[in-house]
Design a protein around this nucleic acid. Sequence first.
DNA 1: AACATTACATACCAATTAGTATGTTGTCAA
DNA 2: TTGACAACATACTAATTGGTATGTAATGTT
Lengths: 208, 208
Amino acid sequence: MNTELKKKTRNSEITRAHILETAFYEIYRQGFQGISIDKIIKNTNVTKGAFFHYFRTKNDLGYAIVDETLREIIQERWIRPLAAYKNPLQGILKRFKRLIDEWADENVPLGCPLNNLTQEMSAVDPIFREKLQAVMLMWIEETEKYLKKAQADGYLKQSVNTRALAEFIVTTQEAAFAMTKTMNDRRMLASIYNSLKVYLESKSAAKS
Amino acid sequence: MNTELKKKTRNSEITRAHILETAFYEIYRQGFQGISIDKIIKNTNVTKGAFFHYFRTKNDLGYAIVDETLREIIQERWIRPLAAYKNPLQGILKRFKRLIDEWADENVPLGCPLNNLTQEMSAVDPIFREKLQAVMLMWIEETEKYLKKAQADGYLKQSVNTRALAEFIVTTQEAAFAMTKTMNDRRMLASIYNSLKVYLESKSAAKS
DNA sequence: AACATTACATACCAATTAGTATGTTGTCAA
DNA sequence: TTGACAACATACTAATTGGTATGTAATGTT
């Protein structure tokens, strides 16, 4: 009892989450192959013994970040907010726009963490590939669900292949951040957003 | 004289080019931070002394690959072929299609070398950033030149912002290979190509 | 209160890393 | 032909790497 208030000097959940969070930011900035366990434990104020108590290898840490951190980020940023919109097409565009507006200047040269890790690691390690692919697949499939809903509710032309459109939308969103990172210029975000908007409007049904 | 036929045991141009080529493929497969100089010289059959005779540091090797290898690849694959087409919009689509058709299966999980290196290194090292950005800028600007030509010749609607369209085209092309790599499925290429085709056709002027 | 177990801590290690120091040997111009 | 320099070759090094061996102390359970 009293699991919430008692101040423990040890708490496995918190320690593990703390390592994951720190490692996530390090990897986001330097890449997975660019960071070392020594750096992570230094920034976490956790000893090597503790680190290897939670993660058997450096790769295992990476896998956990994909399965937990990255998956959650995609869900939170791109999927769950769509539920609030009556017109999913509008929802997709509005959410994209908001993410752009709220994208911190310091993140402009850093890009999308999922894309970064994917481009770096999926060709290097098959387990990374599989896990990163699974996250991306989820993103596409969840997007398609909303496109189908849009079609059912008369917001999207019946002729549209929802899978292909979902792939194109997710690709464009990912690409927007990638190109913004490359050019180090946040105007790329607005430019690509507008192009996607025009494209989606050409696919939307007359209703509203 | 007789600089072509004499078989020299030493040839600085060839040796340097050989190192660059080998390193390019290693980096394409493992990433820049994932390779070591020892690996490169092993696969090149060049000694460490020779390597450091040509490149002062590992980073300098990377810079040379961006400035020379990657720049040339973009020129050869995406820019120069466009000169052969009367209608640049058609040229862009046809070239894209051909690259897709000829994209080797083994390259599907590897993606675009420019994008790989950019996503990995531009946040890590400012000189990488600057050089990679310059290559991408060239790609966009050269593409825009052809869009302007298309506009002048009546193939592209006058209302179109050529810079924004060039950015969108290059972004989509890069993104197509990135997503194909992520999903490890070459059908992504065709899917995204078709979306781009539809989009470009909506921007093309009536003339043919 | 005793105990087993989990959650850490410390010290170490072999391998790999980028880079250097110090050579030797082709090549070419004078 | 010789000398100067470029084009390599070999052996080394200090730092860093991921990971282990072996501890100790906090915690929940009986």
